[in-house]
């Protein structure tokens, strides 16, 4: 009893002496965050209120860039093209990845299969895009040669507006599906085996097990995977830049490409910053809605 005040006194002393060390420990991460994330973001938002060509000093123009953005048909076209891409890309990718993950979980434990499924992800985006660009070339591509040898018509996959976005979306599905499947697979392993055993005892079919046990218990993981892949999907750039550069006409001019050309082709860094802020707002809204709608923070496991 008599020791208590002494003990609390020494605890107080320790907490005081811990503070500088704690600050020191956090400092590298915080400085990194501030220098490489916070400052560029604030600076970028600041630039969006100026006319700036990077070589002469920025000129403040108020909300002019945002007014221009709202009136710019190319911006809205780019936004719709991007949304179209995301819907095709994420739709196909998520269904495929879920299928692959469940098959890996329920059918095989083979490490070789798991590694094979991940291999496309090891290829760089630009290389994957270039390879598919030549495979799908209308004249020289092996893809079209196979179509012709089967007696079908050639399909100008990347040079007609009807097919260009689905084609680019599927190229990226090919590259990312294995990785997404692996993430979902990790989620599947958190589902207790006892739930499946109980379902088996109750005589549920594999199909019923999938819909009644796997999908509901996987929901939080699936929601987080979706948030991550959708944000990534909105940032599509390299595949488009390599295969179509936005064409034909504007049918594959996605937002990131429009922003890039605005900044580095036309030296309008102020307007390009405003467009980037526009993209950021779109992403924040979509992520917020997704988080709320899928209740990604809760789990049904308890």
């Amino acid at each position: 009893m008599s020791n208590t005040p002494v003990a609390s006194g020494s605890a107080k002393k320790r907490s005081r002496s811990d503070l500088p060390l704690a600050v020191l420990m956090i400092a590298p991460a915080f400085i990194g965050l501030a220098v490489f994330l916070l400052w560029p973001t604030i600076y970028g938002i600041g630039l969006s209120f100026t006319n700036f060509n990077l070589l002469t000093p920025p000129k403040f123009v108020g909300f002019n860039n945002y007014i221009r953005m709202i009136e710019d048909p190319m911006f809205w076209n780019a936004a719709w093209v991007t949304v179209y891409y995301v819907v095709v890309n994420i739709g196909v990718q998520t269904v495929l990845a879920l299928g692959i993950a469940v098959l890996m979980h329920r059918l095989t434990q083979s490490m070789i299969v798991r590694s094979l499924i991940l291999t496309p992800y090891l290829v760089s985006n630009v290389v994957a895009a270039l390879v598919f660009f030549w495979i799908l070339d209308n004249q020289l591509g092996i893809g079209n040669h196979i179509l012709v040898s089967m007696g079908l018509e050639r399909i100008p996959f990347l040079s007609q507006d009807a097919t260009v976005i689905p084609t680019i979306a599927l190229i990226n599905v090919w590259r990312h599906v294995g990785y997404t499947a692996l993430l979902i697979f990790a989620g599947l392993q958190t589902i207790p085996e006892s739930a499946y055993e109980a379902a088996k005892v109750d005589g549920a079919s594999e199909w019923q097990t999938f819909w009644r046990i796997t999908v509901p218990l996987l929901r939080p993981i699936l929601a987080l995977v979706l948030i991550r892949t959708i944000i990534g999907s909105f940032q599509v750039f390299d595949t488009v830049a390599v295969t179509t550069a936005g064409g034909p006409v504007n049918s594959s001019r996605v937002l990131q490409l429009y922003i890039y050309n605005m900044a580095f082709g036309r030296f309008q860094f102020g307007y390009a910053s405003a467009l980037s802020v526009g993209l950021m707002v779109i992403l924040v809204v979509i992520t917020f809605l997704q988080y709320r709608l899928t209740r990604a923070g809760d789990t049904d496991l308890n």
Partner: peptide
């Protein structure tokens, strides 16, 4: 345009 695309 479709026949040769943009690279040819």
């Amino acid at each position: 345009f479709e026949v040769f695309g943009r690279n040819s």
